[in-house]
Every structure is written in C-alpha cells, then in structure tokens.
C-alpha cells in the first residue's frame, strides 16, 4: 500500500487560546489533527497481503501456497514471496487521570488533563484516518477504564468517549497500573501515555521493560503545566498537594531554585528511562500546541512502515 497524503488544506496556525475555547474533545481533536495535517501510513510489518515486499529462500515449514511458482519455473529454486502485512497498527492511548492532572496554573490555560485528552483525541483521529486500531485506557490508582484497540470505524467515538469520561482518580500509581495494562493489551501496541509522571522513574522501570518485552512501542507524553516547570510563584503561601492533600507552608522564592533543579532532574530521569528502551519521551507544556506530540506520533508510525 502506498503512503498517501491527503491534499493539504490551508489550516490557520493553532494557538492554545483557540484550542481551549473549543468545548468538546472531538472538536479539539479534529482541530489538532487538522493542524498537523497527516495522511495514511502503512504498517512496517510484513505479512500476508497482496503487495509484494521481498523474496526469500524457502524454508521447511513454509506454507507451499506462498511459494512463487513462476519464479521456480525460471530459476528452478523455491522462493517464498513476501508481502507487506496489511494489519492495522494498534494504538493504545493511555491517559493518566490522577488528581494532579486536573491542575491548570492560570485561567485560560487548559488543565493538564484536558490538554492530554485533546492530544490523545487528536491521535485517535489520526489513527482512524489511517484505519489503524485504536484503543484507550484511563489510569488512576488502578485501570479505571480500558477500551481494547480496534480498527472499527465506530471505535473513534468510543475512544473519545473513554478519554472524555468524567472518571478521575486521586493518586497516581502509574508503575503498577501500566504493568497491568501491558498484560491486558494485545501484543505490539503503540502505547501513547499522556501523564505528568509524578512517579518514581525507578518504580516505572519494570513496567517499561515489560512493555518492551511485550514488543510494544511507547510514546511517553510528559504533560507539564508552565508553573510546574518555571515555578514562578512570588507570594508565600500554603501549598496543597493536589493528590495527597498534604499542606506545606512555603516561601516559593526560597524553594524555587531547588524545585527547578529537582524537576529538571526528574525529567532527565524519565528521558533516561524511556529512550534507552527505544521509546520516545516528549515533554509538552500546556501553553503550547501539542503538535510536536502529533508529529512524533506520525514519525513513530512512519518508522513502523
């Protein structure tokens, strides 16, 4: 199957205020998908389709119907005709819905959860446009919802519905729930994980290794509110942990530098967790359109062709 790219429409540049003004996930997803302007991509796997891929020598045990008899007539040797596998890519959109994801540092800015929903919703649309199987999972302190990947045309609406579900967990147990999700998901899925990753990278490592062992691919989208990265609070106050409810009287000016250093270290640790396993790690600020995420997805998808 040839890579096809739909005619590029003139799409105005996307800004986050416009995205936030769109009220529903489908609208946001479509706006995002239109902004990235992607076409269909093929699977990188070779399988039993009609489109020729390559020849190889016959091996005992190969199905005789896959022998190219015409080539045998010319060469007097048995060759197996390989074709591109036309099976769709299974994309599993994993959304962290813990309480920390509900954070938006200022009005007019999407919360991390809505930002992640819009991003994953747009990926679901892109997957659908490429007729790939798409599923979704909501993770909190457990797997709150799970929708297995499917290439069914109706799956897109189901995925959006799952992503837009009002379920919200309180605490993050990403390492544990991700491990269980790897068990439940079919093999060789593309896990697109949107989370703020408030998890110890060391605790995440077993789950990530398992995903690699299960031949899954992973695109980790680290959703970050600008305030989490910049920590530009000026006035002292009583800081409340969104997940645990823990309170901490704090002069932000005093802790700013140390916080920034710790956050940067955490991001580096996450990157060091995912990249050595062949996965992608992408930090996304909620004050910028997630086009990088969509582009990364498309690049990832292209790499599988």
């Amino acid at each position: 199957m040839a890579v096809t790219t739909p005619p590029r429409r003139d799409v105005p540049p996307l800004d986050m205020a416009e995205l936030a003004a769109l009220e529903s996930l489908p609208l946001r997803a479509r706006r995002l998908a239109d902004a990235v302007g992607a076409g269909r991509h093929r699977s990188r796997r070779k399988g039993a389709s009609l489109e020729f891929a390559d020849y190889r020598d016959y091996q005992p045990g190969d199905e005789l119907r896959r022998v190219d008899w015409r080539l045998y007539a010319r060469t007097d040797r048995l060759h197996i005709r390989e074709t591109h596998e036309d099976t769709p890519l299974r994309v599993l959109l994993v959304l962290d819905v813990s309480a920390s994801m509900h954070y938006a540092s200022r009005p007019g800015l999407l919360s991390k959860l809505d930002f992640a929903r819009a991003s994953l919703g747009a990926l679901a649309l892109l997957a659908r446009r490429q007729r790939e199987a798409c599923g979704a999972a909501l993770l909190g302190d457990d797997i709150l919802r799970y929708l297995a990947p499917s290439a069914s045309p109706a799956r897109l609406r189901a995925v959006w519905g799952t992503l837009d579900a009002p379920d919200a967990g309180q605490r993050t147990a990403l390492a544990e729930t991700l491990g269980r999700l790897a068990e439940a998901a079919p093999r060789a899925c593309l896990f697109v994980i949107a989370s703020d990753f408030y998890e110890d990278p060391a605790a995440l490592e077993p789950a990530v290794r398992r995903l690699r062992f299960e031949r899954h691919d992973v695109l980790a989208l680290h959703v970050i509110d600008p305030a989490e990265e910049d920590f530009d609070y000026a006035d002292p106050g009583l800081f409340v942990d969104a997940e645990s409810g823990e309170r901490l009287a704090l002069d932000p000016a005093a802790a700013a530098q140390a916080y920034r250093d710790a956050f940067r270290t955490h991001r580096t640790a996450l990157e060091d967790l995912f990249r050595p396993n062949g996965f992608d790690y992408l930090p996304l600020r909620t004050d910028a359109p997630p086009l990088d995420a969509l582009g990364a997805y498309l690049a990832r998808r292209a790499g599988q062709v």
Partner: peptide, 22 residues
C-alpha cells in the same frame, strides 16, 4: 504571615528541597 492556599500538582520536589533552602 501570608498563608494563601495554593493547590499544586505535587509537593514531592518542594518538600525534598525545602528544609535546607528554607
């Protein structure tokens, strides 16, 4: 004495660095 509640996603990086810096 300013003590306005500020909800923050996680205090894990703040709490760790607070004692020394504070």
């Amino acid at each position: 004495r300013a003590r306005q509640p500020v909800v923050f996603p996680s205090l894990r990086f703040l709490a760790a660095s607070l004692p020394q810096n504070a």
